[in-house]
């Protein structure tokens, strides 16, 4: 990979265990993420990949384990805290605000950066109007970057699936995150759309230095674009390392191909 330099560990998860009632979703998982890298989480369906992302940005609270993000150690994250610290996220089943236009969706992504208070907004004086314009500029940059100018004012509910995924990425990018969690960004896409998405992800990583944690099923894509891969199966970690290391890991091969243990 080109100019970017992979830095220190910025996110360190230790011994994370997560249960829903009696069901164990994650068991004693530890892994770390370095600054500026593309880190992939792979595994069969139900392996606990999405749960892992949910733990990272605080949607789920693990029963055991520690999360260390940029030197701050905690038992659990809270979603809005994660957002304030620069973690943005997309979802497996697109979680856009369906009643709003593309522009409003992406503008919403900047909400933590808008400071005008309630009264200023109601009367539209002072910061309120100014802010709308300033943030609109930033949002338009993101819209340009992801090439969705033409659908700016379309309600997202009317867009095709592939574009919705792109809008969701735009909303996440609008927050100028330092870390981006992508949950199956390419699921359900055709080859061309996948190529576009790959390009966007690599561009984000390259141009803004954004650290990327992604879940993906397409092995070709994962092996191509990620620096390091962690493999989950039945909520346990069975492999961790560079794409080559993982590819040759016996346990991983067994999990994917169903070879008898």
């Amino acid at each position: 990979m080109s100019g970017r330099k992979i830095g220190e560990v910025i996110l360190d998860l230790q011994n994370i265990s997560l249960r829903f009632g009696g069901v164990k979703a994650l068991t004693n998982i530890s892994f770390d993420v370095r600054e500026h890298e593309v880190r992939a989480i792979i595994g069969p369906n139900g392996a606990g990949k999405s749960s892992m992302l949910n733990v990272i940005n605080g949607v789920y609270h693990p029963q055991e384990g520690r999360i260390n993000f940029r030197g701050e150690e905690r038992r659990k994250m809270e979603p809005h805290m994660a957002a304030m610290q620069g973690i943005a996220r997309t979802f497996q089943n697109i979680a856009l605000f369906k009643g709003m236009t593309v522009l409003d969706n992406v503008m919403t992504g900047r909400i933590t950066k808008m400071k005008a208070n309630f009264l200023e907004q109601a009367i539209r004086i002072g910061r309120a109007g100014r802010e709308e314009v300033e943030h609109r500029k930033k949002v338009e940059e993101v819209i340009d970057f992801l090439e969705i100018q033409h659908i700016r004012k379309t309600p997202v509910g009317r867009l095709p699936y592939g574009l919705q995924k792109r809008v969701e990425l735009a909303r996440a990018l609008a927050a100028e995150p330092s870390m981006l969690l992508l949950d199956e960004p390419m699921a359900g896409m055709n080859v061309e759309e996948k190529q576009d998405m790959c390009r966007f992800i690599l561009d984000v990583n390259d141009q803004f230095g954004t650290t990327i944690v992604l879940i993906e099923h397409d092995m070709g894509v994962v092996m191509d674009i990620s620096d390091r891969v962690v493999v989950l199966d039945y909520g346990k970690k069975i492999g961790d390392g560079t794409p080559d290391e993982v590819r040759n890991n016996q346990e991983v091969i067994a999990a994917y191909l169903g070879v008898a243990h």
Binding site: V59, H80, A83, R89, A95, K98, I111
Partner: peptide, 13 residues
């Protein structure tokens, strides 16, 4: 945002 998808809204901050 809260109306349309509260979990996503929370994640955005």
């Amino acid at each position: 945002a809260v109306r349309d998808m509260d979990v996503a809204a929370e994640v955005i901050g």
